[in-house]
């Protein structure tokens, strides 16, 4: 059991309205250091919208999104642009894979290093010692990350040519390149076969244990969720209907009802 010490992400009463439609209704959620937290719920429950509010794609209508980066001051990040959120230390992957198709796998990961490096246009032209050092470091770090997600051999391949499962892993590597303290994964197992899901399972746990990155993930694959999550939040129709450990959630009548008619292969 990982030691739950400090809160990294603290969301209080998040509400998101699109005109007359309330997509997220007063949802609160915490992620602490060393945790893997899952956000589950039937399709259309508002999970991705929640993610989008937390990562700066949308500005929440109401509520607070507070981050407590380790060893830095806390901030309320409502309405911050997504690049600012990433720079603070929360990176994400996307439900519909959003890779840079016409760039190589390695280059995709290297983009993740952008916010942690500083070379300007002038620096790129002059290619002084500092610039070259940063470039080499970026390349090395990116190769390391590719190795961690088992994509090393694809480094010079165009991202669009990658098989589906590999593309999902690439998104994770790219997000990790930004040196986050919290990783938000949106349906990382979608479309994967059982072997790939198992490998993903191990990867996510490795990321938490070895890289010391906390994880918040949206998932539909119940086996994966029950296996690796420390805590689970359940959403339905924009509201939070339950939270707790895997055992509690599995037996929660409200959760079972919400999923009635869906295949719960827990």
């Amino acid at each position: 059991m990982p030691e739950i010490t400090n809160k990294l992400l603290e969301v209080k009463g998040l509400t998101m309205d699109f005109g007359g439609l309330r997509a997220v209704d007063t949802v609160s959620l915490d992620v602490c250091t060393g945790e893997i937290v899952a956000l589950i719920g039937p399709n259309g429950a508002g999970k991705t919208t929640f993610f989008n509010c937390v990562t700066g794609i949308y500005k929440p209508t109401r509520g607070d999104v507070l981050v407590h980066p380790p060893a830095k001051k806390s901030q309320r990040i409502n309405g911050f642009k997504s690049n600012r959120v990433t720079t603070i230390g929360m990176a994400r992957t996307f439900q519909n894979i959003r890779l840079f198709q016409n760039m190589t796998v390695l280059e995709n990961v290297m983009i993740g290093r952008h916010c942690r490096t500083t070379t300007s246009i002038l620096g790129a032209i002059l290619r002084g010692a500092k610039t070259m050092r940063q470039e080499q470091e970026t390349v090395n770090r990116s190769y390391d990350l590719l190795e961690k997600v088992d994509l090393f051999k694809y480094a010079d391949e165009f991202a669009k040519n990658l098989p589906y499962g590999a593309q999902r892993r690439l998104e994770i590597a790219r997000a990790m390149a930004t040196d986050p303290f919290l990783l938000l994964l949106d349906e990382p197992a979608a479309g994967m076969n059982p072997q790939e899901t198992r490998a993903l399972d191990e990867l996510i746990v490795r990321v938490r244990d070895t890289e010391k990155i906390a994880i918040l993930l949206i998932e539909h694959d119940m086996k994966l969720v029950m296996n690796i999550s420390d805590r689970i939040y359940v959403m339905e129709y924009g509201k939070e209907i339950a939270q707790g450990g895997p055992m509690d959630i599995r037996n929660n009548p409200k959760v079972i009802e919400a999923y009635l008619g869906e295949e719960a292969d827990a």
Binding site: I57, I111, A124, T138
Partner: peptide, 21 residues
């Protein structure tokens, strides 16, 4: 270069590019 890659990423997928910092 770093900025050249950023330009290309911007071209490929602006939302993802911004989300990567």
């Amino acid at each position: 270069s770093r900025i050249g890659r950023a330009w290309m990423a911007l071209r490929e997928d602006e939302i993802a590019c911004v989300a990567m910092g």
